[in-house]
Deep mutational scan, measured.
Amino acid sequence: LSEQDFVSVFGITRGQFAALPGWKQLQMKKEKGLF
């Protein structure tokens, strides 16, 4: 994903996403169907 695509999918930047705890990252990926 490009940075723009990432933001459009998750609503946050890669940096903000990386700062989230692992379980939260997994939850967001599952919600978006990316896992």
Rank of each mutant, 00 (worst) to 15 (best):
E31V: 05
I12H: 01
Q25Y: 00
L20A: 02
L26M: 10
K30Q: 13
W23Q: 08
T13D: 07
I12C: 08
V7T: 10
L1E: 15
K30N: 14
G11T: 02
P21N: 03
D5S: 12
G11S: 05
R14E: 12
F10Q: 02
L20G: 04
Q16R: 07
K32A: 13
G11H: 15
P21F: 01
L26T: 12
T13P: 08
G11A: 03
G15P: 04
K29D: 05
K30I: 07
Q4P: 11
F35Q: 12
G22L: 12
Q16A: 09
D5W: 00
F6N: 00
G33Q: 15
D5V: 02
G15F: 09
Q16I: 05
M28S: 00
S2E: 11
T13K: 06
A19K: 09
Q25T: 05
K32Y: 07
S2C: 09
K32C: 07
Q27R: 09
P21M: 01
K30C: 06
G22E: 14
M28A: 00
R14H: 07
Q25E: 02
S2T: 07
D5G: 09
A18P: 04
T13G: 05
S8T: 12
R14S: 09
E3T: 11
K29N: 11
L26S: 14
L34A: 14
Q25D: 01
L34C: 15
Q16S: 08
G33P: 15
F17V: 05
A19R: 11
Q16W: 01
S2K: 10
K30D: 15
A18Q: 12
D5K: 10
Q4K: 13
Q27H: 14
K24A: 08
Q4F: 12
G22V: 13
Q25V: 02
F17C: 04
F17D: 03
Q4D: 02
K30T: 08
R14D: 04
K29H: 11
G33E: 12
G33T: 06
Q27C: 04
Q4Y: 01
V9W: 01
Q16P: 05
F35W: 10
R14F: 10
Q4V: 13
S2D: 15
Q27W: 05
A19L: 10
F10Y: 13
D5H: 15
D5T: 07
V9C: 02
R14K: 15
K32E: 09
L26Q: 14
F35N: 03
K32I: 02
L34I: 15
Q25H: 07
K30H: 10
K24I: 10
L1A: 06
S2H: 04
V9M: 09
L26Y: 09
P21D: 02
L1K: 07
Q27G: 06
Q27V: 10
P21H: 02
K29F: 13
A19F: 08
F6K: 02
W23A: 10
M28H: 02
G22K: 14
T13R: 03
K30G: 09
S8A: 14
F17R: 02
D5E: 12
K29M: 09
G22Y: 11
W23R: 08
E3C: 04
S8D: 11
S2G: 11
F6M: 06
Q4L: 13
A19T: 07
F35C: 15
T13Q: 00
F6E: 00
L26R: 12
K32V: 11
D5C: 00
G22Q: 13
V7E: 14
F35K: 00
F17S: 04
K24V: 07
F10M: 06
E31G: 07
L34Q: 14
P21A: 04
L20H: 03
I12F: 14
K29Q: 13
K32F: 03
D5M: 06
G22N: 08
G11L: 00
A19G: 10
G33R: 08
K30W: 06
P21Q: 07
K30R: 13
S8N: 06
K32S: 13
L1S: 10
K29C: 12
A19C: 08
K24P: 03
R14C: 11
K24Q: 12
F6P: 03
M28L: 03
Q25W: 00
I12G: 04
Q4N: 06
I12D: 04
G33W: 02
L34N: 13
E3S: 09
L20P: 01
R14P: 10
L34G: 15
Q4W: 07
T13S: 08
P21V: 02
A18E: 15
E3Y: 02
A18T: 10
F10N: 08
L34E: 15
W23S: 11
E31C: 04
L26A: 14
L34R: 11
G15V: 11
F35S: 15
A18C: 11
V7A: 10
K24R: 09
G15M: 13
A19H: 10
